[in-house]
Amino acid sequence: MSILYPRLLPGEAERLFASFHGRKAEELARFAAIASDRAVYAASGGTRASRDQLRLLVTDLEKVASVCGFPEPPGTAAKNEFDRTVARQLHERSGMLPGEASQRQVWAFFGLVLVPHICAWRFPMKNGAYNRDRFKGTDLTRHTLARLWTRAYVLHDPTLPDPYQLLSGLGEADLDQVMSRRVAVAATPALVRAVVRAHVEDGDTGDGIPARAVHRDSLRRLLRLTAFLDLDWLSEQAILELVREQRRESRRFIAAIGVNAADLEDPTD
């Protein structure tokens, strides 16, 4: 049974977010709380998270952020370490099921009440303002924490020695390009796992072709294929073979034409 988390009502979410502008991460730590009078719970479908569970979750998140340098601005390595560790923690310890994790108001509570300082640290202000998606959950693929739970859920593979090892298979930018394709790619968890697994398998082939170029060209090819292929009818092994074949095609193509900056751009451009 799922653990149910508080859901922040839209009006309160907007009020809190507006009050954060201009405040640094360490200042927002004073706004953090484990409860809000403007939060509600789903009427049924699970057990409500207790105050102790919420405190423990906050403590875990703060420990990871501290290890990664909070409140000092995080570098690339610190961001990657934070994302991978928190993704695993949220999926392992939150007790959420996909139905609860799909609720924007749940993640609004996380970002605006529970740990606003951590969201502000991970995604700092630009021009004195924060990006609302990172706090409010208007787009769950961009919310500071929702995107991490989803990655862990999709990439979790109990057949591996470490069920979460695929979380480190792609860098942040490349994994984000996969997960943000919600209909064409991320809607099929087996396809996401196959993309990451095939990328890890390739490793350094010694042919001088950048792994990122192969990944992004093959993702273009997969995006075209998923427009008319129903992957739900394929086994996980068949999907993995499909991805491997697209990577082989990409490697041959890139070897023939060479690599330039265009090969490293967003695959939907």
Rank of each mutant, 00 (worst) to 15 (best):
F31K: 08
P116R: 06
L166T: 05
P161S: 15
F109S: 03
D133S: 14
L148Y: 02
Y164E: 01
V67D: 14
P98F: 14
L140Q: 02
Q105D: 12
F31G: 00
T59F: 10
V40H: 07
S36E: 01
Q53P: 03
R147P: 04
C68W: 07
L145W: 10
A152I: 05
E27K: 12
R93D: 13
D157A: 07
G111C: 02
G45V: 15
A29C: 04
A29M: 07
T141F: 05
V113E: 00
E72Q: 13
F110I: 14
L145V: 03
N131W: 11
W121K: 11
L57A: 09
R55T: 14
C68S: 13
D37F: 10
L61H: 01
A152Y: 03
N127V: 12
F31A: 14
L54C: 06
H91C: 06
Q89S: 10
R132Y: 04
V113I: 15
W121T: 12
V113Y: 01
R55L: 12
R88H: 00
M96G: 03
R122Q: 08
D162W: 10
D133C: 01
T138D: 15
R48M: 06
S66A: 15
W149R: 03
G128R: 08
P73T: 13
V67P: 04
H143R: 06
Q105V: 04
P98I: 13
L160E: 14
T141I: 14
K79T: 06
T85I: 11
D37N: 07
A108D: 02
P158I: 15
R132I: 08
A43L: 10
M125Q: 15
R30H: 12
D37L: 09
Y130M: 01
D83Q: 10
R51Q: 11
R55P: 00
R84I: 09
F123V: 08
L97E: 10
S66D: 11
